[in-house]
Design a binder for these strands. Structure first.
Length: 856
RNA sequence: GCCGGAGUGGCGGAAUUGGUAGACGCAAGGGACUUAAAAUCCCUCGAAGCACGUCUUCGUGCCGGUUCGAGUCCGGCCUCCGGCACCA
């Protein structure tokens, strides 16, 4: 009796072998092309979840495939190890963040190894180590020198729950990205990175991101939010004061019926007497959908026509965008329209749709009959000399007029804001700055780096920077004047760490001096960058991916890399989801808490919830550890890859996992059954050459190699690649070898099958490779090639259509000339009877596909 | 509202990028083996119709178009999902 498939035994054996032979050490063969395959590194939260497994398995298949295709592959892994959970765990359990973090890393590393992932651990990066964060500090200093880092006091997003500041990108629907609590505005001095300086570069770079998903590029473009318009001054009537407004619609200038100021605009408090009213508007600023305004009592003068229009303070006008003041054109802007209706302000239409424009009449509706703003294009009316022109044309002419008459200028605005990086927390990179009463703000000198994060800090979670409590850290001497000085006690946003970790992977572990890599044309960094394939969750579409693009540009400008973009190809994998169960009394339920259709606690009816992303709170998680224990890593990998294409959400199915397991079992059984067959066992390298004819299994094998290779090369269609392997196995299982020739092609077929399966299910492939007499590990083997001749069928079924409908099938050799095929089709009995008495108009032959006879 | 993406069997999903729609898997039904069950193996499996076939008709969200031929291309809708959202 043959041995049963025992995944854990097989997997332990090969994982040990790979580990001991340092099998995934990054290749250095100069003859070979380099391929950098990267997955987003995890936060060491404690244990891996199914989302990690999916992410890393997709990367692992890619890495294996590229290795077999003959590339030197860089496939590293590391830890995004600074961050709040470690600090929170410390406050809660009294464990030091470093201990908590290191223990988690150790455990998760074991888990990753159990999945059989082919990482080069010689390049492991851990961001909370001084060897790593030293370079965060060095980059900070370089950015300070280049005026890319600066300090200013401003209103910032403050999360009360996390007791820290958040960057704009980290506020999702006015909630904290991490803890989902409400974010408030607070005024604090902060360090910023001047990402806005790269706004245009980042935007233009979007055009080059051909290997990124459309929606991610679109999100980046939206976030940068470029718009072109004019800035111009409106005078305040009876005063020397002016108010500068920004508009993208100078063509509507003649329709402006009032001006609005943001409540925080400097003129707002100057112009209004009623401070109470102003405060009410401030209070609702950015919070309420309802538009609230207050008339200042002052009027502004429209420079185009000299009209005096009222000046309001309005809660919907943003101080951070444009000039903090707008001209309001209620007829052509929906927000202004709503505001005008509410405060009974005039609505003056100056653009009407082409269709409604009557050239012979001067009578045009004033706008009082509008039910909503008209924001489309059209013909200008009531606009002085511009009346009768198209608004597109008018827009350019008015902009020119404003510039030539020095009323204002054409400007470009971006929604992108500078990146605030100060965090009032402990577990992060100290910002390398000192404050000296004599010398001012100074960066720590390079030779004093790193500024070590002290470990004897008292973590209370009360809100101020923990480092500020520590006198020995805070007080230092100024390296310039020698007097007493204070250190900056905020730490850096952890997104700084992840903005360049992919560059650190280009070198093996060790305390490398990145300064030596500056302008070094043959540096390892230049050799590997940019990343050929990056894989990770879509939740970083603007956060991490935008910061990394920014950092790469900064590092390009200081001479560390020579690429603009860090990631050539990006795959955003879908979520791993599972069905949920809900009881009206007991909320979310585990599957084992559901008995039939009722709750096991109270007997009440259970409602099947939506299919949701796996999460502890919704009680629909599958633990990768348990899964692997039960079925093995190969089954887990295969199922995850087979169940859905990588970029789509994957719905977990226990039955589907069993299907994948059955497939591996069938493969195991057939290989062992055959190896026990003396006729099969005797086949060796020499007998391969002595085949006398091509068998159908051989043809199928070459077709499979072709299909799998295509699937791999075209958009990661791993699911169809696996389907092709299943088809091949079905054929192998069904085959009944009778001659020596049959055995030869069967054995060669199985060997090809194992090579093709290897990236997906590496352990079982290695094991069965040995069982069929393969030499050495599959790791040293090349990806199989197909022979187009051998993939060709002897006879193919050709469809015969009449007027596009399938009417018959004919069996012919694939390379028969078109005119012969045409004749065979026309001679077909069925075709004859159907075309009887009709006029054959045209016959189309599509090679290898069909014949279409067009009759009338 | 704006920007992206997607609609195909009971389900997850295929379709060589304009050429036989439904590969592969799951579920379901039937059968074999077994004292029995599990496991395994074999058959059926989009809908309707009848003459039960190597049959006919319909069928890829809806309406129209291009084409010998459309799930695929074009125009117009509908629905769902994701992102941003008072950005003037």
């Amino acid at each position: 009796m043959t041995e049963r498939y025992n995944p854990s035994k097989v997997e332990m054996k090969w994982q040990k072998f790979w580990h001991e032979s340092d099998a995934f050490h990054t290749g250095r063969d100069k003859e070979r092309e380099n391929f950098y395959c990267l997955e987003m590194f995890p936060y060491p939260s404690g244990r891996i979840h199914m989302g990690h497994v999916r992410n890393y398995v997709i990367g692992d298949v890619t890495a294996h495939y590229k290795r077999m295709k003959g590339f030197n592959v860089l496939h590293p892994m590391g830890w995004d190890a600074f961050g709040m959970p470690a600090e929170n765990a410390a406050i809660k359990n009294g464990v030091h963040p470093i201990k908590w973090t290191i223990e988690n890393i150790d455990y998760m590393k074991t888990q990753l190894k159990r999945v059989g992932l082919s990482y080069d651990w010689n390049r492991e990066v851990t961001t909370c180590t001084p060897e790593y964060y030293k370079w965060n500090q060095w980059f900070f200093i370089k950015m300070l020198e280049k005026d890319l880092a600066y300090r200013k006091s401003s209103f910032v997003n403050w999360c009360r729950s996390c007791s820290t500041v958040l960057a704009n990108e980290q506020v999702i629907e006015s909630k904290c990205w991490r803890c989902d609590n409400e974010v408030v505005q607070k005024e604090l001095p902060q360090w910023f990175f001047r990402i806005t300086k790269y706004a245009e570069d980042l935007l233009q770079g979007c055009d080059t991101l051909k290997g990124w998903p459309d929606h991610v590029v679109a999100m980046q473009r939206n976030w940068i939010g470029k718009s072109r318009g004019v800035e111009m001054d409106f005078g305040i009537a009876g005063s020397e004061r002016k108010v500068r407004i920004f508009t993208t619609r100078p063509d509507t200038l003649f329709g402006a019926t009032f001006v609005c100021l943001a409540p925080l605009h400097p003129l707002a408090s100057e112009l209004t007497e009623n401070k109470g009213a102003l405060q009410r508007i401030k209070d609702t600023y950015g919070k309420e959908d309802e538009k609230i305004g207050h008339f200042t009592g002052q009027h502004a003068v429209n420079p185009m026509n000299g009209e005096e229009i009222p000046v309001y303070i309005a809660n919907f006008v943003l101080m951070e965008y444009g000039t903090g003041a707008i001209m309001s054109v209620p007829a052509h802007d929906q927000r202004d329209f709503e505001f005008a209706k509410k405060y009974d302000l005039p609505i003056k239409q100056v653009i009407i749709p082409e269709k409604e424009y009557n050239r012979s009449s001067d009578k045009h509706s004033g706008g009082s009959d509008l039910t909503e703003a008209y924001t489309g294009d059209g013909v200008m009316v009531n606009s002085g000399e511009y009346s009768g022109k198209s608004n597109r044309d008018g827009m350019e002419r008015i902009a020119d007029f404003i510039e030539t008459n020095a009323l204002g200028k054409v400007v470009i605005n971006y929604k992108l804001r500078d990146w605030g990086i100060s965090r009032q927390r402990y577990w992060g990179t100290p910002i390398p700055v000192i404050y000296c009463d004599t010398c001012g703000i100074l960066s720590v000198s390079e030779e004093n780096l790193p500024v070590i994060l002290p470990d004897n800090v008292n973590l209370t979670g009360t809100g101020s920077s923990p480092l500020a409590e520590l006198a020995e850290f805070t007080f230092t001497t100024c390296h310039k004047c020698g007097k007493e000085a204070r250190r900056e006690t905020d730490t850096m946003d952890t997104f700084v760490d992840s903005s360049w970790y992919f560059i650190r992977y280009c070198m093996e572990k060790g305390d490398h001096d990145l300064k030596e890599e500056l302008n070094n044309a043959s540096s390892e960094i230049r050799k590997w960058m940019p990343v050929n394939q990056y894989i990770g969750g879509v939740e970083h579409a603007v956060l991490h991916l935008l910061y990394s693009r920014f950092f790469t540009r900064v590092l390009r400008d200081i001479g560390l890399v020579d690429t603009d973009e860090p990631f050539t190809n990006l795959l955003t994998q879908g979520m791993v989801c599972k069905e949920t169960w809900k009881c009206s009394d007991h909320d979310w339920l585990l599957p084992e808490e559901v008995e039939g259709a009722s709750c096991s606690h109270c007997g009440k009816e259970v409602v099947k919830g939506r299919i949701e992303k796996m999460s502890k709170s919704k009680k629909n998680v599958i633990d990768p550890g348990h899964l692997i224990e039960k079925y093995g890593a190969d089954t887990a990998r295969l199922f995850i890859l087979f169940a859905a294409p990588p970029d789509k959400d994957l719905e977990w199915s226990d039955k589907g996992v069993e299907g994948a397991y059955r497939f591996l079992n069938r493969l195991w059984n057939i290989v062992h059954k055959l190896s026990g067959d003396p006729e099969f066992a005797v086949i060796n390298e020499d007998t391969y050459k002595n085949r006398d004819h091509v068998t159908s299994i051989e043809r199928k094998t070459h077709q499979t190699i072709r299909k799998v290779t295509w699937s791999m090369d075209r958009d990661f269609h791993f699911n169809t690649a696996i389907a092709a392997l299943m088809e091949l196995l079905n054929e192998i299982t069904a085959s009944k070898p009778q001659s020596r020739n049959d055995y030869v092609s069967l054995k060669s077929s199985i060997k090809s099958m194992l090579l093709l399966l290897f990236p997906f299910a590496p352990h079982i492939s290695e094991e069965l490779w040995i069982a069929v007499g393969g030499k050495g590990s599959i790791l040293s083997k090349e990806w199989p090639r197909w022979d187009e001749e051998l993939a060709k069928e002897e006879e193919i079924d050709l469809v015969v259509q009449i007027n596009g409908k399938v009417r018959a099938k004919i069996s012919i050799p694939p390379d028969k000339p078109d005119d012969e095929i045409k004749q065979i089709a026309l001679d077909n009995e069925k075709v004859k009877s159907l075309t009887e008495g009709k006029n054959i108009f045209k016959v189309i032959v599509v090679k290898g596909r069909l014949v279409n006879i067009v009759v009338k």
